[in-house]
Amino acid sequence: MSVLPYLVAGWLFLAGCVGMATSRNLIHAVGSLAVCQSSTYVLLLAVGYRRGGTAPVHSDIRPGSRPLVDPVVQALTLTDVVVGATVTALLLALVVQVAKRHGTVDPDELRELRG
């Protein structure tokens, strides 16, 4: 259990990369990239977790009464989620244009930019 979350993070990263490398559809590749990115969420939050800790929000607990999980990694992950969403949007926009200009979204059929 002590390394399971980290292994899951590594697994997601590799799975996403494999998905991208073997993809026959650029939209699928963007989805795989999202999987790849979810590895970073899992790693960061796992690093900040504390056994028996509660969420770092003092709306219903008294300050200092219980151990808290690390709020910093949560803030980082939040930023990361936004970054992921925006990158996905931009890449999808580019895929839409690739489909328009090349008439395909299969990376094997894109025959420009060689050599």
Binding site: R50, R51, S59, L68, D70, P71
Partner: peptide, 24 residues
Amino acid sequence: FGGARHPYGERAVEAALASRVANA
């Protein structure tokens, strides 16, 4: 996983309380 050592996190919680923000 789940260890108790989070120096930055603890400082951040203290700083949050000091500036009176409930959600760290």
